[in-house]
Simulated assay, not measured.
Amino acid sequence: MPMFLSLSTSVWILIAAGATLVNLVAMQWIIQIPKYKKQQYWMPVIGIVALGTRGLAQHNALPATLYLYAAVMVMMPLMLAPVRSTITRDHYRWVEDPTTKASKGAMVWIISSALVMMTAVGVGYAAGV
């Protein structure tokens, strides 16, 4: 059995809790638009509901579900942190002029980093099944 699934459930609970804290702190730093800061607290709730429901529906072991949850919680800040100032600038430009488009460089980074991270998480998950 691969290493991540050989950890006990209690260790995975601690890892998921740590990933939640990392997400909450990092997203407060990344999101610099006041009206969206409070909405970031919903991300762990949505993750728990979505991945918990998926885990129950597919009869996944709790460590596997916690692995996916922790990965998703860490992925979001990793994707957005490098382009946080661009995202903020684009938002305020869009507020002034709704025809303003998002910066292509930021969009390329977000999409490509998401694909790389989802692939890595998927490979890790598949290795553990």
Rank of each mutant, 00 (worst) to 15 (best):
P82L: 06
P77F: 02
D97K: 14
H59R: 15
H59V: 07
R54L: 13
A70N: 03
P63F: 04
A57M: 13
V95G: 09
G55M: 01
P77A: 05
L66G: 09
M79L: 14
M73S: 03
V74W: 08
K101T: 04
V83H: 12
H91Y: 15
P98W: 11
Q58N: 13
I87R: 09
M75R: 12
P82Y: 04
P98T: 01
R84K: 11
G52N: 13
A64H: 11
P82M: 07
M75V: 01
T99Y: 11
M73A: 00
T99S: 08
T99P: 05
R93G: 12
H59F: 15
P98C: 02
Y92M: 13
M76T: 08
Y92C: 08
G52S: 14
D97E: 14
M75E: 04
A71F: 06
A64F: 10
V95S: 12
A64K: 09
R93E: 15
A61V: 10
T65Y: 06
R93T: 10
P98Y: 03
L56W: 13
A61Q: 14
P77V: 01
V83A: 12
R89P: 03
A71E: 01
Q58R: 12
L62R: 09
V95Q: 15
L56H: 10
V72W: 11
H59L: 06
Y67I: 05
D97Q: 06
H91S: 02
P63S: 02
P98L: 07
Y67M: 10
W94M: 07
A71C: 10
A64V: 04
I87M: 06
Y69T: 05
M79K: 03
R93H: 14
A61P: 07
V95E: 15
A61L: 11
A61D: 14
L78M: 01
Q58V: 10
G55S: 08
V72D: 00
W94C: 00
T53C: 11
M73H: 03
P82G: 02
A71S: 13
T86P: 05
P98G: 02
D97G: 06
K101P: 00
L80C: 00
G52T: 14
V83K: 09
N60F: 12
V95L: 11
P63K: 09
T53I: 04
R89Y: 14
V95A: 12
R84G: 00
T88V: 06
N60L: 12
L66N: 11
M75A: 06
A57L: 10
I87L: 12
R84V: 00
D90S: 07
G55H: 01
R54G: 10
T65P: 05
T65H: 01
